[in-house]
C-alpha cells in the first residue's frame, strides 16, 4: 500500500486555542479516511494545515514521501492536493464551465506570453480542458448546466460543482470538507458514487463530515478529533461503539 499523505506530529495554536495537537495521520492510495468530531475539533483546521492555508507551528507533512509543509498554498496544490471547502468558495461571477476550466493544475492559457505568442497551444489546451470538464459534469449529472452561472444552481448542485472543480484539479490527494452538508436526494447519491469511484481509481481521499451514515457507507477507517487532538482511530463502527466518543460528539 502506497502512503500518499503522512502527517507527523503536527501542532498549531492560535494564542491559547490549540487547533492541532500532536496529530498523526496516514492515508494510502485508494483509501477514504473519515474525519469526525464535534464542532471546533480542528477538522477544517487540519485541512487548512495540510493544504497550506495555515502554517503549522511544528511537525511535518509529507505528500508521496516529499516534505511539503514549507511550501505555500499554491505550490502544495501543484504537488498534488485538491480540496473542496465547507462554504464551497466557487467563483461566483463565472459559469459552471468556467469554474471547471480554471481548475487544471497547469494551464498554458494563463501565461500572458503564451496567450499572445503560443496561440495554438493555448487553443489545444482549451479544447482538451473543455472535453474533460464536460466528462466530469456528465458524471455528476450536470452537463446540462454547463453554461449557467454557478450562483443560479441549487445548493446541492453547487456542492457538486465544488467537487467537480477539485476533480478537474486532479490531485492524488482529495480533501473534502463537509461535502454532504445541506445536500440531499439525488445529489447525495451522486456525491457518494463519485467519491467512491475516485477512490477506486486510486486517489487518496479524506472526508470531514457530520453525516455519520455517509462516513459509514464510504470509509473503511476513520479518526475522531476533539480540541485539536486525535482521540481515537479505527473503523467507523469501532468509533461509534465508544460511548465516550458519541457523548462528546452529540454533546450529551
Amino acid at each position: 500500500m502506497t502512503v500518499v499523505l503522512r502527517v507527523h506530529k503536527l501542532r498549531k495554536a492560535f494564542g491559547g486555542i490549540v487547533v492541532a495537537d500532536d496529530v498523526n495521520i496516514e492515508i494510502a492510495k485508494g483509501e477514504i479516511l473519515g474525519l469526525i468530531g464535534p464542532n471546533g475539533a480542528g477538522k477544517t483546521s487540519l485541512f487548512n494545515l495540510v493544504s497550506g492555508v495555515l502554517k503549522p507551528d511544528t511537525g511535518h507533512i509529507y505528500l508521496n514521501g516529499v516534505r511539503i509543509d514549507g511550501l505555500p498554498l499554491y505550490r502544495r496544490a501543484r504537488s498534488g492536493i485538491a480540496r473542496t471547502w465547507q462554504n464551497m468558495m466557487l467563483f461566483t461571477t463565472m459559469t459552471v464551465m468556467e469554474n471547471l476550466l480554471i481548475a487544471p493544475r497547469s494551464y498554458p492559457g494563463e501565461s500572458i506570453f503564451k496567450v499572445t505568442l503560443a496561440r495554438d497551444r493555448v487553443r489545444r489546451a482549451e479544447r482538451e480542458a473543455r472535453l474533460r470538464a464536460t466528462q466530469i459534469l456528465d458524471r455528476v449529472g450536470l452537463a446540462h448546466a454547463a453554461d449557467a452561472m454557478v450562483t443560479d444552481l441549487p445548493f446541492g448542485h453547487q456542492k457538486l460543482i465544488g467537487l467537480s472543480r477539485a476533480l478537474m484539479n486532479d490531485g492524488e490527494l482529495l480533501l473534502l470538507d463537509e461535502p454532504m452538508a445541506g445536500v440531499e436526494g439525488a445529489a447525495y447519491e451522486t456525491m457518494q458514487r463519485v467519491v467512491r469511484q475516485e477512490a477506486d481509481a486510486g486517489r487518496a481521499v479524506c472526508v470531514v463530515e457530520h453525516n455519520v451514515s455517509f462516513i459509514k457507507d464510504l470509509c473503511t477507517r476513520a479518526v475522531f478529533m476533539s480540541n485539536g487532538r486525535i482521540l481515537q482511530a479505527g473503523t467507523v463502527d469501532e468509533l461509534l461503539a465508544s460511548k465516550a466518543l458519541t457523548d462528546l460528539y452529540f454533546g450529551v
Binding site: F14, G40, K43, S45, L46, L54
Partner: peptide, 9 residues
C-alpha cells in the same frame, strides 16, 4: 487575515 479560516470546524 487568514487566521479567520480557523474559526471553522
Amino acid at each position: 487575515k487568514p487566521a479567520d479560516v480557523t474559526q471553522a470546524s
